[in-house]
């Protein structure tokens, strides 16, 4: 092995990733070539420097959330088999509001986004403070979204229905960036998700439903009800354990707030 050949194998040599034959050749070369010996030594110490970098652990709260998520999944699977439809999330309301970006979409099949949103909600519903930005002020939440994502996110006033704003998060679901609003009604948590630009040709899964002249698609997921609709390139989805009527009322408020925003 000459210096050039050794050079091509330097890193694999230092990492102990050469097969026995080439490794022996490389060792033989290093023992007779001070230059290559020095370089191998330098690489070794550089590698050591990198390996000795401090290893940060995941925050305890986050770890607890992931453990809970795995347990939740286990429970869900049990309940699904025993009860058919789980009554698990009975005290939980999820309002999912989705604007989806699908740049590569071909108009075929939308990913199971609602299912992902329900998962997301189930995960966050277990937290004491699920919001990344906590605020009961609608303008503050809208401003936070504008600053974080550049998106104008309509934040509807649902207080007449006894539903209060809690805060917001930026989330991801099925490869979509999702703006996530959280509301609560008593002990009922309500989440709002948003992602811009959805493929308007892709069909929405579920049962068609009409409410005050507007068309929706309804679907039950993991004991939660989902009401979805598309508005231009924006997909909205409300998911909750509440009855469809309550959801549709919320949906209407959301539509109204969006229309109001558009006029501004």
């Amino acid at each position: 092995m000459n210096c050039r050949e050794f050079d091509a194998r330097l890193h694999a040599f230092v990492d102990g990733e050469l097969d026995a034959g080439p490794m022996a050749d490389a060792e033989a070369h290093v023992s007779t070539c001070p230059d290559c010996h020095g370089r191998a030594d330098g690489q070794r110490r550089f590698r050591q420097l990198l390996r000795q970098q401090p290893k940060e652990a995941a925050p305890a709260e986050f770890r607890a959330r992931m453990v809970a998520l795995a347990r939740r999944e286990r429970t869900r699977k049990k309940v699904r088999v025993w009860l058919g439809t789980p009554a698990l999330a009975a005290a939980v309301l999820l309002l999912a509001f989705v604007l989806m970006a699908r740049s590569l979409s071909t108009g075929g099949h939308e990913p199971d986004l609602v299912g992902s949103l329900v998962d997301k909600h189930l995960a966050y519903a277990q937290l004491e403070g699920p919001a990344e930005f906590s605020s009961t002020e609608r303008p503050a939440v809208a401003a936070w979204f504008r600053q974080r994502t550049g998106l104008r996110v309509p934040v509807p006033d649902l207080s007449p229905a006894g539903i209060q704003l809690v805060g917001a998060r930026i989330a991801e679901a099925d490869q979509h960036k999702v703006a996530y609003l959280l509301y609560e009604k008593g002990h009922v948590l309500m989440s709002v998700f948003m992602v811009p630009e959805v493929d308007r040709r892709a069909p929405l899964a579920g049962r068609p439903m009409s409410f005050r002249g507007q068309e929706y698609v309804a679907e039950e997921r993991q004991g939660l009800r989902a009401v979805s609709w598309r508005d231009g390139q924006t997909l909205f989805s409300l998911v909750s354990t509440l009855d469809y009527n309550a959801l549709l009322e919320c949906a209407e408020q959301l539509r109204a707030e969006r229309a109001r925003e558009a006029r501004l």
Partner: peptide, 11 residues
């Protein structure tokens, strides 16, 4: 973002 990415991975 890291937490969200790991959560997505986890799910």
């Amino acid at each position: 973002e890291a937490e969200d990415l790991v959560q997505e991975t986890w799910l």
